[in-house]
């Protein structure tokens, strides 16, 4: 079972305030990248909210993730400008290269692929964002390089972790 101390802390902070379930769930996802089952159980216990209600909220909002996302989150913009400029084909290329559908993570949890509607820089369309880094005027041939760049970063992180 995972460590639920974050959930305990967050839920304790919000328990007295009515209507603050969403805030608590947000904070857990901010720290963990998703809301694990054990954490939801802990929130239920601490905030005295039935788990069924918590999952009504968690599954209603697209924002909440119930499973650990990949470490590099690839957001492909499918807003009007990016879509017209060919990001649908870029998305297909990402799917093919990673072997996953949108909204899914690779089995090694390295990558998560998702669509977003406009990231606010239509002048650079078509746009992709990976963990906050923006790529403009993306073409199909860039896809492989972007994945490669982040695969190397993840490998370096792993090495540092192993030595540290």
């Amino acid at each position: 079972m995972g460590d639920t101390s974050v959930a305990t802390q967050v839920a304790t902070k919000w328990r007295k305030k009515r209507g603050s379930l969403i805030m608590a769930l947000h904070e857990i996802q901010d720290v963990k990248g998703y809301v694990p089952w054990e954490d939801a159980l802990e929130v239920a216990k601490t905030m005295n909210i039935p788990l069924a209600r918590i999952y009504e909220v968690l599954t209603f909002y697209n924002f909440f993730k119930l499973e650990a996302p990949g470490r590099a989150v690839i957001s492909v913009c499918t807003g009007t400008a990016c879509y017209l400029k060919g990001n649908d084909k870029v998305l297909e290329e990402f799917k093919k290269e990673l072997g996953i559908n949108e909204g899914e993570s690779t089995s090694d949890h390295s990558f998560h692929l998702q669509c977003v509607r406009c990231v606010g820089c239509c002048g650079l369309a078509p746009v992709c964002v990976v963990n906050g880094k923006t790529y403009g005027r993306v073409t199909i041939s860039d896809v492989h390089n972007i994945i490669d760049e982040w695969r190397r970063k993840i490998e370096e992180e792993d090495k540092e972790l192993a030595h540290g």
Binding site: W37, A40, P50, L51, A52, R53, I54, Y55, E56, L58, T59, F60, L66
Partner: peptide, 19 residues
Amino acid sequence: VWALGYQNRGLATRISPAN
């Protein structure tokens, strides 16, 4: 009892226990 609740939304909505 709170065994049942709504899961997901729109066309994907289903009534079932949590998750």
